[in-house]
Design a binder for these strands. Structure first.
Lengths: 248, 248
DNA sequence: CCAAAAGTGTTGGCTGTACACCCATGA
DNA sequence: TCATGGGTGTACAGCCAACACTTTTGG
């Protein structure tokens, strides 16, 4: 099919007007990894049902209505396109504006990082699918770039914030939490240190009740929870000083 | 003057079109601080010459042309509005889209963080002015929010990247560098550690020549330079492991 | 039915590194 | 005034050992 770029809209003063979309990179992590099968970081994609790139996988996206904020637009499209009701965490990633990124018409898209616990994952639509970030198929537009940015952002923040709470269930064992951290960071994590560091920082607290022992026996694990229920920078990077009170 | 919100543009399918602007938060830091007068972090602002907010200070901004990228648009507006030729460092910050942020017409703006060395600062236009971030005047629109985001971003990155090279001259003394770090972080920095840490990380190297002694005598300082000439993450946060080779 | 073994989870100790913060010394 | 080194303390990585509690296995 021929790609005919539409002429841009302009107002009376000649200022150009653009289509503006929101774009969601919704991630989940887990479950517990085993030596052979490490825990996975997955992203929610769906098959496009219209041109351009019809039939290809793409991130959920859609235009921003005149009266809504971009966050509201994102929530709406996730609900309409995927039946996904709530994001446990949502933050703006970046805005993509390359003039040629949409072959039909210049479209500016603002991408968001969304996180959900593994359990909450139930996309209704048949075209939607969780895919391992490590084995991402070809995506429409520049969506593969955004997935990379999302993973980088999450990887960076998981070490100095409590952002992992958005990927964990309300109560969890250290084995589960380890799986989440391993999936996010893409490498092995020492449970001893993970537990010690998070406890020392006051990020997690023991719930008290013991969980059930595994199928092959073993000591029943303690269950834990995050001490805060919303995102916070827990440990602003200490290099060059703890920096208690900036004057500005 | 009455604020009449313009009706939105829509295409044949009813998708809304928006004005899209770029917005620059251009910062510089220094010079050497003294006990009474700490080193300053300054932002470049200019007086608006038209409505809305005519007469108020604002960040440099302007619309994106159809064929240019947002980075090109930013560079163009900085040149046209302020006579500023080059940014030593430039990165996207965030996109502002609150429906009411522009009283005339919904305008989506993508903000950028720009850094220049103290010396390069010569805005030609008379309306342009360097202002201490600590004593920011009332700014038009939501520009004060963006300045806050810019400072936070810079503060975060100065500790685990070599981003300070964009604020420093090609060669500098440790006293100068200390001033830059103090201006950015808004607190005192121990030169001993600053020097040791940056040397250990291989971020800075001695140029060799000694600078001139200060006005009141004393040992002439060594001069230093950054070993790399472009932005790089030098020290991905080590908490939870140095993480050499993520598999994804 | 009971004891031992094997599996799993929790905690503490040890060594090494990187840094903060302070002080002393020397150019 | 600037540069450098030393000393102490904290936080963490990475490893290993000890211990706690379970199910399974073998008498």
């Amino acid at each position: 099919m021929p790609h005919v770029m539409r002429a841009p809209f302009r107002d009376q003063r000649g200022v150009a007007k653009y289509r503006h979309e929101v774009l969601g990179v919704v991630l989940r992590a887990g479950p517990v990894g085993s030596p052979g099968r490490p825990a996975e970081l997955q992203v929610l994609v769906r098959r496009r049902d219209r041109e351009p790139f019809a039939g290809k996988f793409a991130l959920p996206s859609g235009p921003v209505e005149v009266t809504e904020t971009m966050e509201e637009a994102l929530a709406r499209h996730l609900r309409e396109q995927l039946g996904l009701e709530t994001l446990r965490h949502c933050e703006q990633l970046a805005t993509l504006s390359d003039p040629g990124r949409d072959p039909f018409e210049r479209t500016i898209a603002t991408a968001y990082l969304g996180l959900v616990p593994w359990e909450d994952a139930r996309p209704r639509e048949s075209g939607a699918r969780w895919t391992a970030v490590a084995e991402l198929p070809d995506l429409a537009f520049d969506h593969h770039l955004v997935v990379g940015q999302a993973v980088d952002r999450l990887r960076g923040k998981v070490s100095y914030t409590n952002i992992a709470l958005a990927l964990a269930p309300p109560e969890f064992t250290m084995a589960t939490l380890r799986g989440i951290y391993e999936a996010v960071l893409g490498r092995e994590i020492d449970v001893t240190n993970l537990s010690r560091v998070l406890r020392r920082r006051g990020q997690i607290a023991r719930v008290g009740t013991l969980g059930e022992a595994g199928a092959r026996g073993g000591r029943p694990p303690s269950t834990w929870r995050f001490t805060e229920d919303s995102y916070r920078v827990t440990d602003p990077f200490a290099v060059l000083g703890p920096g208690r009170n900036p004057t500005v």
